[in-house]
Each structure stands twice: as C-alpha cells, then as structure tokens.
Simulated assay, not measured.
Amino acid sequence: MIRVALDAMGGDLGPRIAFDGAIEVLSRHSDVSITIYYSPVSGVDTPAPNERLSLIPCSDVIDGDDDIVLSLFRRKDSTLYRSLEALSNGTSDVAVTLGNTGAMVALARYVLGLLRPKLYPALIRELRSNPLRCLVDLGANVHCAPSMLYGFAELGAAYVEAIADEEAKVGLLNVGVESTKGSSVIKKTDDLLSDCSWPKYLGYAEGTELFDGDKNVIVCDGMVGNAVLKASEGLLSFIMEKFKAEQGAASLLKSFYQIERRHGACLVGVRGNLVKGHGCSDVPATVGAIEYGIDIARADLCTAMQTRLCNEEIK
C-alpha cells in the first residue's frame, strides 16, 4: 500500500481541490491510501473518511506569501509541517503539497534532512517522459554558486537513472554553446562538470535543447529554471487559446502536453519523496501531482538516488 500525505491547504483554489483530487485518485488506485492534512474552512465540507482516506485537522496554515523566518520552524501544527513530519517518521511514503515553495524547501531541509551534506535540494521537472528529459532547478535556489549547480547535475542524473534506468547526459543551460559565452559562475561550473567522471557531461545547452536533443538533464539556477518553465507553460496556454476555433487542434495540443510530462515537480536532495504541485492547480492537475507522487514512491526514488549518490562519493 502506497501511503500519501496530502497538504490540502496550499493551493490557490482552496482545500476543495485537494479533497476532490484525493477521492479521484483513490477511485483509480486500489493500493493507495491518503491522509489529508487540512484546516477547517467555513462552507467547505470534508469528504467522508474510510479505511483508505484519513483526515487530520490542523490549527495552522502556511500561506503563499509567508516569509521564511525562524518562526516558520516552530509552526508544527501547520498542514505543511504535519505532512512532512509524516514522511519523516515513516507513516507516509510520499508527501504532496500545492503550497508555498520556499516554505516547503526550508521545512523539508529542517524536518527531513539532506541526502548528503552541502548538497542543496533542488526542484526537478520532467519536460518529457518518453524519452525522459528533466530541468533542474526550478526555483528552490535562486543565487547559486558553481558547487551548487554541480550538485544539481548530480541530483538530476541520479533522478534520471533511478526513474528511467538509462544513462544521464547533462547539459548546462547557457546563452550559447561557445566556450567564450556565459557568466563566471557558468564557466566555473562547466570546468567542474568537465573534470568529473560522473555524471556524463555534454557541455553547454541552449534553450532550443530543452525538449529535444541528446541531453536529458538540463541544469540551471532556480531563477532561470522557473522563468523557462512558466514561459513554456504560458506559451502553450496562449497557443491553445488561439487554436480553440480550430476543430480538435486545442484538444490535441492538450493531450500531447498531458502525455509528455507529469504534473508538478519533485524536490530531490532531501530524505523523502516530495512533490510540489502548481499553486493554481485544478482537480485534474492535483490528481496528476498525487499520481506523480505515487509513481516516485513505488520506485522508492529517495532510496535509489541516495544509493547512486553514495556510490559515486565512495569512488
């Protein structure tokens, strides 16, 4: 049985989205149980609990605009903290939240701990699933030193090799592939990756290589990654809107997009399986984020990545 801890309070559209998403997931997967951490909201009815659906009321909710300050770590009855705590104490196999990204990263480091000292956690997004292509980081870290970007390459490579059982081929996102281009941070990161035996490094990558080409792990800092992701999603929405008048065109694009990538992103580098969905997720997107969490829990992603990283560290 895969046990999911679901933070119901982080989404922009309220807990009803999480409730409905959980019920839909349970109807699809007989080997899944979900524990929902929620705060009672006037006018929103909770679903009826059963042997595979549990509801745990919490007294606190971390909002999207809450700052990452010391008091955050004392808010132990918040829905986000409680869902991460369930992951930490082994009562769940994966945690899913649609909430505050900064708070999630900070609390995950605090509650779960790091896979390896000085290896900063990063958000990974699957841009395509067949063949698997990933972008890392998406916003967990904004100001990144070369050593951090090098760590993102390790995390991305370990993710690909754990999920897809294929060789990771890393590219470093840059303004061009020429050796003279890029900031000092990018050039130093290039030197670090060029000198390593693992992961396999194929050099600089341009934006045109995000969705196609030999490189299946594209590394960048969180500011760039988040901008790239949001721009790509915005372009898709724009095209779908323009194609609404064309018979079947918009639905074809939407179907392709749903098949080619997962909903949500995975926070890697912490001791647990953790999925972050879009704050604006509707029910289908929430279902997708939960099912993504189920997939990585079934693959025992965290353990597989830790084993891969430790093997490289021992060499």
Rank of each mutant, 00 (worst) to 15 (best):
P121L: 05
V170D: 03
G203V: 13
K187L: 13
I124N: 03
L202P: 00
F152K: 04
S183N: 14
T180H: 15
A168V: 02
A205L: 04
D195A: 15
K169P: 04
S197K: 03
R125M: 13
S197D: 09
N141D: 01
K181C: 04
D191M: 11
L123W: 02
S184E: 13
D190H: 14
L173G: 09
M148Q: 11
K187D: 12
L127Q: 02
L192H: 06
Y201G: 01
S184I: 14
N174S: 11
S194W: 06
G176N: 02
C196T: 11
Y159V: 04
F152S: 04
I186M: 15
H143T: 00
S183Y: 10
C144I: 00
I186T: 12
L138M: 11
V136N: 03
D190I: 06
S184F: 15
G207Q: 12
S197Q: 15
A205N: 01
R128H: 09
I163F: 04
D190F: 15
C196P: 03
A157K: 03
H143W: 00
E167Y: 01
V170K: 05
E206M: 09
S184R: 15
G203H: 08
L123D: 03
L149G: 06
E154D: 01
L155C: 11
C134A: 14
L193F: 14
D137Q: 08
A164M: 07
S183P: 14
G182F: 09
V177K: 10
C196E: 13
G139P: 09
W198Y: 10
V177E: 11
K181H: 08
K187N: 12
G207P: 08
G139H: 09
A158V: 10
K169D: 00
V185R: 00
S129I: 10
V175G: 05
V170E: 05
I163K: 04
L127Y: 09
N130Y: 11
E154I: 05
G139N: 07
